[in-house]
Design a protein around this nucleic acid. Structure first.
Lengths: 355, 355
DNA sequence: TGTTAGCACTCCTACATCTCGAGTGCTAAC
DNA sequence: GTTAGCACTCGAGATGTAGGAGTGCTAACA
């Protein structure tokens, strides 16, 4: 069977109406719309066809119709393919939100984490869905710089800076206070040997060499190297920020106690979220927006949800993901537009002053 | 009316039974217990008295009895006053949990935050309630040490260390790369003037002096001072870690959609939690355990809950709070014991190697 | 005087029954 | 191809009923 123009319009009408009400939509409702001025009977015939095609279903006999995953997929694919319309609506529909986001982002807080957290919050407030933002994540990061300082009490502060100006602190307990000269020497030795290297390049021979050069302070060098390894490792396990978890409660189809408990659990754990949704595909570029509908979502407890993700980039190859999690009947149009807008704003901010 | 021994026993029995079942407990249930081998009628008489005293209520006629806030308060006060019994039961009741916590804590992770997060998780898992841990918090903290390093790209890394080895990083964009000598001079000037001072002590005359000594680099010094102010401020707004939010769903009296949504919202926001529960009273010492029951909880959405908090101390006056949030019928005995245990373990860990 | 058995009473819960309305599919007419 | 009409289905909500748990009260008992 072919999906002619009228059927497509009816499908769209069903999707939009269901989006707003959350109730199955019947033939009468559609027949009352201006663009589809046919009798309910006619609509019913078309709806029977759409059901046969697997695009809509009725939850039970004598109920209205609800879009299936397949129906949403068709709608979303269509949505993503003609961008012009999308962007046109954006400008007129979301001006206040846009400016609000602009404000948040333009502050350019020194701490990226904080900015991402705020971004998650603003997105959640704007869309009324749940949001997830993974921290910036380096593929094959390199050591930029090490700085040791003594801070008294037999302790040394090791500041480790990775490319992209990711800074990690470590306090090492060495049992005695180093004098300035030794400190300078150690700093030199470490930086001279290690700067610019990735974790794989710091191998056993190199470690031996560093230790040898450190002389009496070989064990301190060893501790620093441990800290370096820890810094890389920590950077590998990217943080995940979430916001708007309670927005889930707004959608009755998700607000079932057991379901929502599982959902919030996943949000709280964050790990699974990060690995399942935060993974950036090799070929993926910015502005690439991915939509997962229902069963397509790679997280078990979200099989009743849809997730829209976008990849952001911060120059230097640092990148992360933003995800918006909502009911399957989410406003894909708005979510996609909002994400696109956010991406381009982020882009503007990161690109300009960063390089 | 006087609360004689038998009445006290009956109240205790009601509290314990209600704790386990969550259902109002009737006279027959109590009469079947070994220690209270009276007929249901007798128990009923006593229960009527207890109700008159405001210690228990029946949700509706012909229902069993449920403890009131006042009843719990009596029980809890009694619980906290005779500690010996409490500690005796601890040892026998919670051996596995104790050792698990011991493991977590004894690892002594370098990053305190991470340890606190883990602690929240373990406590939530052990108690089956929701937990909240505020990050360590300084009253009147002092600047210990500043370290500037150039990291290329016209940027400077300013590492600011506060007492208690709290480390804050700031990347300052100064537009050009400093040479080593200037860097050393700047570091000297800053540390020489500022170390050991609290935020209030860094006043305008001092700032002027620092800027003057910095000479051509006065604006860099100004940026560093801003960063220092930021570090103190950030330290003032303590972080809050939560865990086990979904444990709430286990208790039907809380699992109502609207209530639980509000609850989770507060947990997500964290700010209110921190200010309301995380505030440490001046005279408060470690091992001080506070119990808030129902309306006593200073957070609106938790009026159906009870919260037990404990203050931990990390030497040097750094301190924070641990809170356990559960239904009013929570197992106070277990929660208080677990907290006491955790406190003393934390104590052992922080005290020994820290000073 | 304290304890207990007995009994009438209350009220919640669960279950079955019923009605109503929304929506359908089908058929026949336009 | 479209529409009106009609019988049918099903869920949601209202109503009614039975059962059970628990109570308070009274009177009898030790």
């Amino acid at each position: 069977m072919e999906l002619d123009d009228r059927k497509r319009k009816i499908l769209l009408a069903i999707i939009q109406n269901y989006q707003e009400t959350g109730e199955p939509v019947g033939s009468r409702t559609i027949s009352k719309m201006d663009e589809l001025n046919y009798s309910p009977a006619t609509i019913r015939n078309e709806m029977a066809d759409l059901e046969e095609m697997g695009l809509i279903v009725q939850p039970h006999t004598s109920a209205g119709r609800v879009p299936t995953d397949k129906g949403y997929r068709l709608y979303v694919d269509n949505l993503l393919s003609n961008e012009e319309t999308a962007l046109a609506t954006t400008a007129s529909q979301l001006p206040d939100q846009a400016s609000h986001m602009e404000q948040i982002l333009s502050k350019r807080m020194d701490r990226v984490e904080e900015m991402l957290m705020r971004m998650a919050q603003v997105l959640a407030a704007n869309t009324q869905y749940t949001t997830m933002v993974t921290g910036p994540h380096y593929k094959k990061n390199k050591l930029k710089f090490i700085q040791l300082s003594t801070i008294g009490g037999g302790k040394v502060l090791a500041v480790i800076v990775l490319n992209g100006n990711i800074v990690k602190n470590n306090i090492l307990d060495i049992g005695f206070d180093l004098d300035q000269e030794t400190l300078v020497n150690l700093n030199f030795t470490l930086n001279n040997n290690l700067n610019g290297l990735s974790i794989e390049e710091i191998n056993l021979p190199l470690i031996a060499k560093v230790k040898e050069e450190a002389g009496d302070y070989a064990d301190i060098a060893a501790k620093v190297l441990d800290a370096v390894a820890g810094a890389f490792e920590k950077e590998d396990s990217m943080p995940v920020y979430t916001s708007g978890a309670t927005n889930m409660f707004k959608y009755p189809e998700l607000a079932d106690n057991e379901k929502i408990s599982d959902l919030i659990n996943v949000l709280e754990e964050k790990k699974e979220l990060g690995t399942a949704l935060g993974h950036v595909e090799p070929g993926e570029s910015q502005q690439d927006i991915q939509v997962f509908i229902g069963d397509e979502v790679p997280v078990d407890s979200m099989k009743d949800c849809s997730v829209v993700t976008a990849t952001y980039q911060m120059g230097d190859g640092v990148q992360g993901k933003i995800g918006i999690i909502g009911p399957k009947r989410m406003n894909y149009q708005k979510v996609v537009d909002t994400l696109k807008q956010t991406m381009s704003q982020l882009d503007g901010i990161f690109k300009k002053p960063e390089e």
